[in-house]
Nucleic acid binder design. Structure first.
Length: 199
DNA sequence: CCCTGATTCGC
DNA sequence: GCGAATCAGG
């Protein structure tokens, strides 16, 4: 695969959105994350300053020449692919990630404890073995936060999202599934077993 | 171990 | 210009 205008544009877009090189590579297809990173550098946008979030490390000590006025970090003039850019007058950083932590407090205030919960299976419709397995495995769970989940961590939620005691299993997922082996067991039941519960 | 970006260097 | 290999870190 080659770097067509389209692909470069997508690369620029995703990169400025803060997507990781591997995610971009996956999206583009036919390239590795190394290729993406290489391209990013060649394009001169390694410094993700496309969206207003830039962390300029002050050149600090410059004992030599008091000249060389390089005020501007990067030359603009990017025709297309221009994502929404915030031109902060001074040095205001408004990274999207910054909003995340504040949410837990807000959410706690809004959602009444113990109401709308994820798929938590009710005990009486699952095989005892599977249940036992789950309660066992939840002791070994990695207790990941939402942010820590990846494609290969079990995404089974445990606990009440409205409380501090909430986390995701985080154990290695079963191939192709979103959950670990134990949780796959309770998440995907053969239709036969959910037939005729006492009603 | 999983992941991240940065750099190098033969092609 | 390209990107695998490597490096340096979280």
């Amino acid at each position: 695969m080659s770097w067509t205008d389209e692909r470069v544009e997508l690369l620029k877009k995703m990169w400025s959105e803060g997507q990781s090189a591997s995610q971009i590579a996956k999206e583009l297809g036919g390239v590795t994350r190394n290729a993406v990173i290489g391209k990013v550098h060649r394009l001169g946008l390694s410094n993700r300053s496309g969206g207003g979030t830039a962390q300029q490390a002050a050149p600090a000590a410059a004992p030599a020449k008091p000249e060389t006025a390089k005020a501007k970090p990067a030359a603009p003039a990017t025709p297309a692919a221009a994502a929404p850019k915030r031109e902060a007058p001074a040095e205001t950083r408004s990274a999207p990630e910054t909003a995340a932590p504040a949410m837990s407090a807000a959410r706690r205030a809004i959602i009444p404890a113990g109401q709308p919960l994820p798929p938590q299976p009710s005990a009486n419709e699952i095989s005892p073995e599977a249940l036992a397995k789950v309660s066992e495995i939840e002791k070994k769970a990695k207790r990941l936060t939402l942010m820590e989940l990846t494609e290969r961590t079990c995404k089974w939620p445990v606990g009440d999202p409205a409380t501090e005691d909430f986390w995701f299993c985080g154990l290695p997922v079963q191939q192709g599934k979103p959950y670990c082996e134990a949780h796959v067991g309770v998440a995907f039941q053969p239709m036969s077993s959910r037939r005729d519960r006492k009603r």
